[in-house]
Design a protein around this nucleic acid. Structure first.
Lengths: 331, 331
DNA sequence: TCATTGCGTTGGAGCGCTCCAATCACTACG
DNA sequence: CGTAGTGATTGGAGCGCTCCAACGCAATGA
């Protein structure tokens, strides 16, 4: 910087102003500085800048599972909104262990990120609360009710209700829910399912399972074994729905003629023609953008109470759901 | 830091040593410092550290497409190897435009990343060369031959040959390759296909396509239309294979009885039971780890010539490939 | 006894930048 | 003509840390 200043015949402070694009620099000097910087291959030093500026213009993002395209999409939204406001992202992907997540948060704090956005964190609430003491924090995809922590969630209850409504509208009355165990939001999806079924005077059958493919396979296998196949199945997520789909077809059933199937999340898999799963969509990018917006407000100090954004999901009708069969295929 | 030093009754320099885990500190002092730090909630300032230290202990990673689980896996490998060696990752996901990629690289340079690993970059070679002048650079998944740039690639030619060998071994002689257009490595996959087919004295039929689902659908549709279905299809990637699969089944064919299908990449989709695609696997995590290892060697100065690592792919046999049908189903 | 070694410790300079108050050049006004 | 006002420019302090040369102190050997 010193060199650039010398070469351009100005002071270091002026170079600093130019590099930050300040308006109060004469065009003449600005050009001289830019030219000198170019010739010398000068590149501002981000660490020095954030040290002097006492802010990093950086938002930390902790992604619980990079392989989950759901979070990749959300991260996408965060990124977009962040860069639109001049913030850079410090992405911290994490796998497996909770302690990795704690470590990731700690590291972001050491980097003095101006805010932290967590996608589907599993870490202990206490850790979040402690971190929130020193920096604005927003969480996506985990139902949390903590002071000082902003939250963006999907209305899982509503999503499940949409699924039930859709199926009931098609004439189904015997519907089984393959639940998501301890998975994020699974509890609420089950709740929504049960509530809506009862609301229609129907019996809510629920099968314990998990958020993976094998769960779907097992659940259906179990139904077949007990000769208890319903006319429609609502799986807690797309992955288990794909498992269910496989097992159903393996049993010789055709969808949606013999049985209907609805998933949750609208992952890219659901959209494959070969799968073409009716499912519940969450506006992922938008959720990311909202989370970013929340911490932005905190950074700018325009809000100090915790915010909680509940996003409305949407049903995407594809080809695994249809009218209830008039004559049941023997199972 | 000042405060911690005062509270522990030592100098700032000593606190610095403790925070960096230096061995040359008496246990007594160390404990006093750690206690003081704990009580005061002291957290070292990463930016200040890297400024003073003149190295960031950070490796920048530019992921071309976060949604591509392929790269997510590679990033995983990079991460693992990096943290095993005390490096942190600065992940920079990029979407769509080339200029985003340039910007990401520039930003990493400003952050003085100690090295940069690029996953499937599309950016102009000149940009890479220029960046390589100031920091070690490794590239994964792009066939590049530049001085000062390390490269990890999958042996696409070999992968394609594996596919051909597999199919020929099953008795197939009429095989069509649905190619990957301008996609990464597609040229080599086609090359491997052609070479091996010719080697077996067979005619290599190739259909121009791309790395997406629609391409696979279209390619097969075209074959059906011209009544030119082969006994086996080798798609340039899994996504187009899934498209092909859909269209084939839509045409009433059963796999692998009527026709065989092989993909490339072994993405998670290929592993779904409902898909169960025979495909070519690349050791993604390992590729990431290797790339990290390469820049590590550069950082440590133990190597100065460009390295080029060609990884051997592997065939994963699932249920879309089988013996050539004895009697062809009318198409 | 004194020089020697070596470990643990310390003060101070400096990393590259931004911020602030002060200064400067210049115009506008009474 | 002096003075206030305006906008561009500058020097210097300081951000929080690490590095280095130097120091204190006990143990060692002559």
């Amino acid at each position: 910087m010193e060199d650039v200043a010398a070469r351009a015949g100005v002071s270091r402070a002026l170079v600093s102003l130019v590099m930050r694009g300040s308006p109060k620099v004469s065009d003449q000097r600005r050009e001289a500085v830019l030219a000198a910087a170019e010739e010398l291959g000068y590149r501002p030093h981000a660490a020095a800048r954030s040290l002097a500026q006492r802010r990093s213009n950086t938002v930390g993002v902790v992604v619980n599972d990079l392989h989950n395209t759901f979070f990749a999409d959300v991260a996408d939204g965060v990124h977009e909104h962040a860069s639109a406001h001049g913030f850079r992202l410090l992405l911290n992907a994490v796998w497996r262990r909770d302690e990795d997540e704690e470590e990731a948060i700690e590291s972001l704090l050491e980097h003095r990120a101006d805010a932290i956005v967590l996608l589907g964190p599993r870490v202990d609430e206490a850790v979040l609360v402690e971190a929130a003491a020193s920096v604005p924090i927003a969480v996506v995809g985990r139902h949390l009710d903590l002071e000082d922590i902003d939250v963006v969630i999907n209305d899982d209850v509503c999503g499940a209700e949409l699924a039930v409504e859709h199926l009931v509208g098609l004439g189904h009355r015997d519907i089984v829910h393959v639940d998501g165990g301890r998975g994020a939001g699974a509890r609420f999806r089950r709740e929504g399912f049960e509530r809506r079924m009862v609301g229609h005077g129907l019996e809510p059958r629920v099968l314990a399972a998990d958020y993976d493919e094998a769960s779907g396979v097992n659940a259906v296998a179990q139904l077949i074994e007990h000769d208890a196949l319903p006319t429609a199945i609502f799986c807690a997520n797309d992955l288990s729905a794909v498992g269910a789909l496989d097992r159903l077809e393996g049993h010789g059933l055709t969808l949606p003629d013999d049985i209907s199937l609805v998933g949750y999340d609208n992952t890219s898999i659901a959209g494959l023609r070969h799968v073409s799963l009716t499912t519940i969509h969450q506006p992922r990018r938008e959720m990311g953008a909202r989370a970013m917006q929340m911490v932005l407000e905190r950074i700018q100090g325009s809000r100090s109470e915790a915010a909680r954004d509940v996003i409305e999901p949407e049903l995407i009708e594809r080809s695994t759901s249809g009218p209830v069969p008039t004559k049941r295929v023997p199972s």
